[in-house]
Structures are given as C-alpha cells and as structure tokens.
Amino acid sequence: MSTDRRIVLFDLFGVIARHQRPGALAELAARCDVPTDTFAEAYWACRPPYDAGQRSASEYWTDVLRRLSRTADTEADTDADAGVIEELRLADIDSWSRVDGRMVAYVRSLRNLVEVALLSNIPSDHADAFRAAQPWLGDLDHVAFSGKINAAKPDPAAFHHCVTAMRAAAGDFLFIDDREENVHAARAIGMHGHVFTGLDELAATVEGWLLADRRAG
C-alpha cells in the first residue's frame, strides 16, 4: 500500500556518515590494556542493547569492562573505572563522527524533490553528540535514532516507527542502507529498498524510482 507521497529514508553510517574511524578500536583496546581482538569482541557483543536504548552508556561500558575482567572491587577502583568509562565513551563518540560531504549535499538537495528522513542505529548519547555537530539534520523531515526510539534495525519496529511518525504508508518509502539485511527487513514490511554502494548508483536509483512513480500516476 502507498499514497502519493515519496519519502527517501536514509541509513546514516556507511551511507551519509563514515564507518568508525580506522584504528579506533585499537586505541580503545590500548586504553584498556588488552589485545584489539579481545576488546573488539566485547565491544560488539555488548552493543545491540546499547544501540537499541536498552542500556545506558555507563551500563554498556561497564558490561564491556566486565567482559574484559576489569571489575571494581573498592571505592577507589569504582572511581577509577568511572574515569575510564568516560574516556572510552568520548573516544568512541569521536570515532563515529565523520561524514561524507558529498552525501550530505546530495541528501539536502533531495529535499527539493521528496521528503527525506533518517533511520540510524546509534546509541542515545552518540545521537545527541551527532545532532549537535551536524545541524543539517534539523532540515530533514524526520530523524529516528535507535537509541531514542528503543528499536534498532533490522527489527521491524524501527521501520514501523518511521511509518507511524510520518503518518505515511510503508510503500511511500525508499529505504537506503549499506547492509543487505536491513534493506531486506525494510522490504519485508512493504518499503522499497536499495543497498548503497556509492553516490552515482544511488542517484540513478532514486531518479528511476521517482520516474517510475510519475509514469504509474
């Protein structure tokens, strides 16, 4: 089902924003004095509930440190771990802060043709920092961060949130993501989907989608 509206719904990281800065996990691992592979396993294993707003930043990093066998036994240790957690949290946010300027310009230009929205898997505190650093997000028709809506892709609830919040139908959306599983999940609820590989291919896909819609009308 669709209406006469057209909404391009973008993923953030890997599409508009860069993936985590290379070497960031090694730097975080060094701060914890553990091998990078060991740190990365704990970092990603604990991530899903943090992304989905089910764990706070402090709880997430406590979970990571616990997996790394860094537990606080005394009040002094607890204070030290609190300092470590804040250092890790801020460094982590910084490692996800880069954007692709060409993609930002393209997204903004699309608003002359269609409605434009964003759906990103990002923890709540990261979302606050990203929004503060990227004021162009305020120009979009809707912005949904997983840590704020308590649902992360590919959970259908994340996509349904956008449909409901924008008072639209699933068929009104073209969802853009660099991960196939997320695009498949969007298609499963009735959205159109495109796996992002680059700006030129994306622009052609969006143009073709809009042209097909005009022909159908």
Results as ranks from 00 to 15, higher is better:
1 M>A: 14
7 I>Y: 03
9 L>F: 09
12 L>V: 07
14 G>I: 08
16 I>M: 10
17 A>S: 09
17 A>L: 02
19 H>C: 04
20 Q>N: 10
21 R>Q: 15
25 L>M: 15
25 L>C: 10
27 E>Q: 12
27 E>W: 05
30 A>T: 01
33 D>I: 02
33 D>H: 11
33 D>C: 04
34 V>M: 03
35 P>A: 11
46 C>E: 08
47 R>Y: 00
51 D>N: 14
52 A>H: 02
54 Q>M: 05
59 E>W: 02
61 W>I: 01
62 T>Y: 06
63 D>I: 01
63 D>F: 01
64 V>G: 06
65 L>G: 05
65 L>I: 02
68 L>K: 00
71 T>N: 03
71 T>E: 13
72 A>Y: 03
73 D>K: 06
74 T>F: 00
74 T>S: 15
75 E>G: 15
78 T>Y: 09
79 D>I: 07
82 A>L: 03
82 A>D: 09
84 V>D: 04
85 I>L: 04
85 I>Q: 04
86 E>Q: 13
86 E>I: 01
88 L>W: 00
88 L>I: 06
89 R>M: 15
92 D>W: 01
93 I>R: 02
93 I>A: 04
94 D>Q: 13
96 W>N: 04
97 S>H: 03
97 S>V: 02
98 R>H: 10
100 D>K: 12
100 D>A: 10
103 M>K: 02
106 Y>V: 00
107 V>C: 06
108 R>Y: 01
108 R>I: 00
115 E>I: 08
118 L>W: 14
120 S>K: 04
122 I>N: 14
122 I>G: 01
123 P>S: 08
124 S>Q: 13
126 H>E: 07
127 A>I: 01
128 D>G: 08
131 R>L: 10
132 A>G: 06
133 A>F: 07
133 A>W: 05
135 P>S: 12
135 P>V: 13
138 G>H: 15
142 H>W: 13
142 H>G: 12
143 V>P: 11
143 V>Q: 04
143 V>Y: 10
150 N>C: 11
151 A>Q: 08
152 A>S: 15
152 A>F: 14
152 A>W: 12
158 A>G: 08
161 H>S: 03
162 C>P: 00
162 C>S: 13
165 A>E: 15
168 A>C: 05
169 A>K: 13
172 D>Q: 07
174 L>F: 09
174 L>D: 04
176 I>M: 14
176 I>Y: 14
177 D>G: 07
178 D>E: 00
178 D>V: 09
179 R>S: 11
179 R>K: 13
180 E>H: 08
181 E>M: 14
182 N>Q: 06
182 N>W: 02
185 A>H: 09
188 A>H: 09
189 I>V: 15
189 I>A: 05
193 G>N: 11
195 V>G: 03
195 V>P: 06
199 L>M: 02
199 L>Y: 00
199 L>N: 03
201 E>S: 15
205 T>W: 04
205 T>D: 13
206 V>H: 07
206 V>K: 05
209 W>L: 02
211 L>T: 13
213 D>Y: 02
214 R>V: 07
215 R>L: 12
215 R>C: 00
215 R>Q: 03
